[in-house]
Amino acid sequence: MTLNLSVSPDFPPAHLSGWFIFNTWLQRQLGTGVHLELYDGFEEQRKDIRNGKIDLIYANPYDASMLVRELGFKVLVRPRNRADETVIAVRQDDERNSVEDLESGITIATTADPDVHTMGMIMLESADLDKNNVTFREYDNYVLVAKALLNGQADVGFFLKAGYDELSDLVRSKTKSLVNSQISVVHHTLVVGPRMQEHVELLTERLLGMEEDPKGREVLKSMGLDGWDLMEEEQTEFMIDLIDTLID
């Protein structure tokens, strides 16, 4: 039986090849066929998840909530030192220097990434901004969000911090961050579905051992990761509870 691996569409494009390398590594470890299915959009991926087409997924925290609580998936590990944080940025020459300087009627460049969009909107609440008094322009990735900002198509951009940090120095220098989230307990996770049950023990052991093994370390590096940390069930539940408090 071939298993299906997928990755949340918000992964940095620079690590695309890393996920193919991980897929090959995974097949060798498990001794079974694994197919990597990538998606451009979150909705398309969620549809396939709900239809039982995905067995293993590197999921964003919002989707992890659905996978665990609704579909019986289990979180195995999380990437070390890779919390999902959000940056709200404006153009460098913008006179506004804090969130409270923003006023209703602004245009926000955002993505369909549920973590970043939700945290971005939460951080705008202190300026009395919500979906009813701002305009959104949705883009496929953070490079396009930055472009929209620099072209004047948007006043404000929402970025995954990792995506903001990976912008070119030139582009980043033309923007300034108004606020960075510092939550630290919300992160992506590697989540397995019911058809993966027989592989869970071996997979967990191999994932945790990756950083000790030269080949494993190379695979991690190609994905832009340092290593995996085990997620206990209660840690997962805690993260999901926290996310529940953030969704209206």
Binding site: M123, E125, A127, F238, L242, T245
Partner: peptide, 12 residues
């Protein structure tokens, strides 16, 4: 229970 607190606006 889990309680999460965030920054409120001055008007609120």
């Amino acid at each position: 229970y889990t309680s999460v607190r965030r920054k409120p606006s001055r008007s609120k």
